[in-house]
Write a protein that binds this DNA or RNA. Sequence first.
DNA 1: CGGCTAGTTGACTTCATTCAACGCTGGTGG
DNA 2: CCACCAGCGTTGAATGAAGTCAACTAGCCG
Lengths: 231, 231
Amino acid sequence: MTPQAKDLALLRTLPLFAPLSDETFAKLAGSIRFDRYVKGDTIVRQGDQAKWVMVVLEGFVKLTRLSANGEETLIHIFGRGETFAESVAVLGDKHTTTAEAASPTRIVRLPAHVVAQAAREVPELALSILHESSAKIWALMDEIEALKAQTADQRVLRFLLSLVPAHATSAEARLPYTKGVIAASLGLKQETLSRSFARLKSIGIDIDGRMVRIADADRIAAEIERLNRIV
Amino acid sequence: MTPQAKDLALLRTLPLFAPLSDETFAKLAGSIRFDRYVKGDTIVRQGDQAKWVMVVLEGFVKLTRLSANGEETLIHIFGRGETFAESVAVLGDKHTTTAEAASPTRIVRLPAHVVAQAAREVPELALSILHESSAKIWALMDEIEALKAQTADQRVLRFLLSLVPAHATSAEARLPYTKGVIAASLGLKQETLSRSFARLKSIGIDIDGRMVRIADADRIAAEIERLNRIV
DNA sequence: CGGCTAGTTGACTTCATTCAACGCTGGTGG
DNA sequence: CCACCAGCGTTGAATGAAGTCAACTAGCCG
């Protein structure tokens, strides 16, 4: 399999494309474009016309918003296999966020008009885009819930828990992006995250540079619980 | 026009239904159901199968999430003309939030299977549902941005600004729901909101019970700005 | 080697929450 | 008709969680 064929195979398995017939998929795949970005590159700019549906093949993309005062607020992070800009692109709207590579990143883009046209012809595609949007809504609701109802430590613990493979009880993992970005994604300052990590050493969480070692995942869940009760 | 005919006319103008042909709209309208709720009633429960697409005709509906510790977190509030549960219903998923009437409320519901079927047959409907979802994504991103990047006073000011009609420079309005709910929607405790209102008197904002009088909307915008610079 | 960028740590500040008491208002039942 | 209560909101005092500012370290690239 050539590298590109591999990428296409990955695409085919994504929720966005999986329900499509081979024929429809082939039509879409015909107009695909591959891109590479280095950390810090801007992929799409807030306010620009959306012309492409994007899929992350490798690396991480951070969505940010420019606030009135010029500061940027991190809204969400996308990783391998995740789609973004799909709804704006299909609807012909403008980007409401900026997307920037948070690490070396490869993405695939499909021209908006091709996808939009196909969505009109093939109801499955429209529904699977809707499905993606729906999933995004849930993810954003999760974030809001976390920001409103959880303390810094709880959010950090939840994040760490997400690094542990399902059913595993202990884990050794690499932080997916820099601590600064992790902090921003959790709605924290870098210093606060650093202090939080330091505190969490006592419950079997060891962070050394980019490596995390989690002794007991259940203990993390228990600690999130405990922090709830204290209040 | 009978009251119901009026409601149907309102429905017809909503973004969700406006792009539809008369024929499609009539098909949907045929299976509509009207409902009334009093404040505090549960409209849909988190975890239940989504069977209906809902549209608010009157009043306000608050979406909440049950957190692990049994507390409920307010995620979003819907008002007149807004649709909710449309994506979950069409996709046949379960509700991920609870919806509760935040005031006396009238809603319209359409059976999920009817809408889902129509969405498969009429691409415009699928796209307009997608459009709704997309709008919801933006709204949620706004909330996240506000929670991460703005202080309590800024969020309160932003909320007050949303009560001022476009282009108006001063306004007298009624708070759409109780202060407790406003506080929760802004990610604040009731006490904090109360104190914020008290502070804001000095810039021409007067709150007396449910009534708000805003002397100068530009001043509010300026104050939001000023609070940015201070930091 | 110097100069970045990323991350840590300490001291201090501040914004929002918590806890608790109290006020107002509208409804209900004696 | 009044008394009492519940729900909603306000206010004060004390606390605490996270942010700010600043100094410093470690690693990395040219």
